[in-house]
Design a protein around this nucleic acid. Structure first.
Lengths: 301, 301
DNA sequence: ACCCGGTTCCAAGCAATCCTTGGAACCGGA
DNA sequence: TCCGGTTCCAAGGATTGCTTGGAACCGGGT
């Protein structure tokens, strides 16, 4: 990525396609017509291809322009989604629904849940706080968050809870690793292989070790590496070091793009519940509303 | 999208997460450490949340930083993909494989094909030219492109051709439209309803009218609207005007996000072959290689 | 104890970019 | 012919972004 794509320019291009004139596009963007003209000209010279046919009666896209505009669609959508997700991090507003969540849930599930919920009615603003499960529990207990999401089965008795889904820990290997061509590995193999794991003390590590012990083969081999972030874990595994263990939520993208392959374990599934928690006796109205929205099955195909 | 996300800043954040220090990240980006420091500071003030914990022995991400970094992943990937796609538009290089393609194919299929092909070996650079089917044929015939992709069944006799896939024309309706809840509509209903269509003379329009006529119900109602770009078509349909007809390739995204719903036609499928064409007697080596890569079934799940 | 390599921040200045204002040409319909 | 619509060109100012130079902090090895 020499220089990153000019998102504003691409948005301007899309607006020109839609409105048929630089002027109208500029008005929508809240800038002058000249600014849009310059931006698009810059875009053209950068891509080395004319994108517009300009006339005294408006502008239309060349075929290259239509191509670029179409290709930019997913990019602009991703940008939109990103800003929306990130908006829930900003602090300091009144009348906000404060949510605390484990990192995995906050990364992969909450943005969509929040977007879907807020998409319907206006609803209150949402502030999101990410932490580990213990901190989430404390935050909710202190009342600093009206709602919490954790992925450990143990829920304190003084909090109400509701299971809203399940998370599976999976073994993944780089495509170059022999395991990526195996139909399944045994629990014993897993316990005696140097793996890439989360650090001791993390919920993921604890769940993995407990599952192995339950299956009669406690973890015996020292880890190949110990990382504290899913990002680092994924990179290390993908770099070809060794197979690793992490949440299925964190590797969906890698599996889709074939950067990593899933390795099944014979006769074993490691599943943790995803749990929503709130202070007794019952959730705040907004929190209750969000929960209802999450548990309503409006899922995608 | 008030101000677009700072892609360079997000990339810097990802690099800091990976390397553990502003300095190393700066080196990777080819700028000074101070530049990265400023950028990330700006990012933090814009998001209103601290992203890094800085220490004299390196920097690590806060949980909010990990969140932002994770959310930025798809965005950065989309940017990467966009620049890669757009790279094939630039002109004027020697030793390039010149390809001409219909707009639909160039928009939705070629970038992935080219990326997959070039991903393997270095291969020659690719220059892409988008036009309508007639122009594609002319361009290939004149030798201005070594390879062409069209979506009409009629292939001139002086060109060699190979069918590489199929494209279906589908009827879509906005979710508010009654048809979106119908299991199927009849050909007669379709022929007598004011639809949003491509302009007369386009391949899509011709194929649609021919299919209706073949089914015994030639198009009778005047269109609700006629647009010359798929983008305009999709917007018009989504705005709630009326159902419309276009290539299934162009609406995959809209169907996935539920912006549009597909409406089946009773006892009718409108299918056109996707055809690669090249000048006789046989394709240029590079073109042949690309074709082989396309037709090799390495498809995704 | 000391220095040295590593990390970070602050301040000043330069350079490039971006946007606005102001002016002009072009086309088509009233 | 005029007028509303479109576009481009040119100059000025404000902002942004990066670099250079200087300083503080930490930890490990000499």
């Amino acid at each position: 990525m020499e220089r990153p794509p000019d998102l504003e320019g691409l948005r301007a291009l899309a607006l020109v396609a839609e409105t048929g004139s630089l002027n109208a596009a500029a008005a929508r963007l809240g800038v002058t017509q000249q600014a849009v003209s310059l931006r698009l000209r810059a875009l053209e010279t950068r891509l080395g291809v004319p994108l517009l046919v300009r006339s005294p009666r408006g502008s239309t896209l060349t075929s290259a322009g239509q191509l670029v505009s179409a290709w930019a669609g997913p990019l602009l959508a991703a940008a939109e989604e990103f800003t929306e997700s990130v908006g829930s991090l900003r602090e300091g507003r009144e009348r906000t629904l404060r949510i605390a969540a484990s990192l995995t849930i906050a990364e992969h599930l909450l943005p969509e849940w929040i977007a879907r919920w807020r998409g319907a009615g206006a609803g209150p603003a949402v502030q999101l706080l990410a932490a580990n499960s213990d901190n989430v529990i404390d935050t909710v207990r202190r009342g600093d968050a009206a709602l919490g999401f954790i992925e450990t089965p143990s829920v304190p008795a003084d909090l109400k809870s509701l299971t809203i889904g399940r998370d599976e820990l999976v073994v993944v290997a780089p495509p170059t690793h022999p395991w990526s061509r195996r139909k399944a590995v045994t629990v014993e193999e897993l316990a005696t292989t140097a793996l890439v794991l989360r650090e001791p003390g993390s919920g993921t590590r604890a769940a993995f070790e407990a599952a192995l012990a339950d299956a009669g083969a406690p973890l015996a081999a020292p880890p190949n590496a110990e990382l504290s972030t899913t990002l680092g874990l994924r990179s290390t595994i993908a770099a070809g070091a060794a197979p690793g263990v992490l949440s299925s939520l964190a590797v969906q993208e890698d599996l889709r793009t074939r950067r990593l392959r899933r390795v099944r374990i014979r006769d074993l599934e490691i599943i943790r519940p995803l749990t929503a928690i709130w202070p007794a006796p019952r959730p705040a109205p907004a929190a209750d509303d969000l929960l209802r929205s999450i548990t309503t099955p409006t899922r995608r195909p």
